[in-house]
Design a protein around this nucleic acid. Structure first.
Lengths: 203, 203
DNA sequence: ATGACCATGTAATCCGTTACATGATTCG
DNA sequence: CGAATCATGTAACGGATTACATGGTCAT
């Protein structure tokens, strides 16, 4: 399971389940996420395997927290996983399915609206990531060379998010243009004055 | 569930579970996938709901096939789903987690090797998608304007895959450069002759 | 006849989400 | 006092993968 290893990685310093969840909603949110209801049992299982230890720590203020620490075996397992090569899961994009099937509506306006909505959501997420990027390395990666090893690796990971999201936003722009061109009579260059057939049958 | 709607979408023409699986390993593979063991029960459930009907069709050759057809209600449900707006699930990238945690190896050569491997896998997938793209619309989208509504929508979906994969490959290139820069003494411009400290401690 | 491929399915297991249950502390 | 937040968990359900079980056809 990947979540196990993500948890091992996030536990380079001791933390509680609640802390880790905060990590998912802040730093790690662009590449992974998990709910508390998944995190707690997972941590328990990792402890049973000997990859973590835990201790109840009643802090000066607030309810007691169960703080987990990575063991030497836990770290070894993390390193083993890192050596396994890139783990690439199957990506599923329901919205691309929707787009493919949208021809059944026979209404390019609907497709266009769909792409506009998609672009706005992608842009919102891109803005978040760009913020994270400039927080860590300044505008345009001004001080990438001054980053410590940890921040440098995180920076690289954020860059993927930024680039791939920007590509998707650009794709929306391109698609919207092509939809416009598809909607107009396609005979602009050919000078042919057909009645803008909405649909061409394929052979 | 999204799979249900993907199946409804793929059943614009009658097909068996086996046919649909072929669709996932060919045309639809860039945005969705499912195993036969998931497809068969899902089709059965859709039939129970009245969104599909099925018939055993013993073909001239080979074993009998159960062929599914979409009902009017099935089509209505598909259209309803299309109207719901883009369905964006949570994306999980285990390999970005690996990259983030890789600083624990304290060996930029390992990071570099990792990125090389990742790039080669991404390139392989990109090549497949570019093939699909030119199959449908010619090189550089030469005949996009001549596509029927269905192929046009599929073309748009493929374009997203191409653009986002290209962005990821470019990201690998950029990262590899930055890793090289990180490995060299960073004092090139400053003219400072320190012993190339491998790691800078953060405050 | 052996293996590759067509074709359909079930069962076990795992991963992830949603809902539920509990209780302390802090702020207004 | 009441709401928000901190903090830990369990239970039920749903979605996806892997393994298992079966049998027909076709080419070598």
């Amino acid at each position: 399971m990947s979540l196990d290893h993500i948890l091992l990685g996030m536990l380079s310093t001791p933390a509680s389940g609640y802390d880790i969840r905060r990590g998912f909603s802040e730093g790690a949110r662009h590449f992974w996420s998990a709910e508390l209801s998944q995190i707690y049992p997972a941590l328990k299982a990792l402890e049973k395997r000997g990859w973590l230890t835990s201790r109840l720590e009643p802090p000066a203020k607030g309810p007691p927290r169960r703080v987990y620490r990575r063991t030497a075996q836990g770290r070894a397992e993390l390193l083993r996983w890192l050596g396994e090569g890139p783990q690439m899961g199957t990506e599923r994009f329901a919205y691309l399915g929707q787009l493919c099937f949208m021809h059944e509506l026979d209404d390019l306006q609907a497709t266009s609206d769909f792409m506009l909505e998609l672009r706005s959501r992608l842009r919102a997420f891109l803005a978040l990531l760009q913020q994270a990027e400039s927080d860590i390395a300044g505008t345009d990666g001004a001080h990438v060379d001054t980053l410590n090893a940890e921040d440098f690796h995180v920076y690289l990971a954020i860059r993927m998010g930024v680039r791939s999201l920007r590509a998707k936003v650009d794709w929306c722009d391109e698609a919207l243009e092509q939809i416009e061109r598809q909607r107009r009579p396609r005979a602009v260059a050919a000078g042919n004055a057909t009645q803008a057939p909405k649909e061409l049958r394929h052979g």
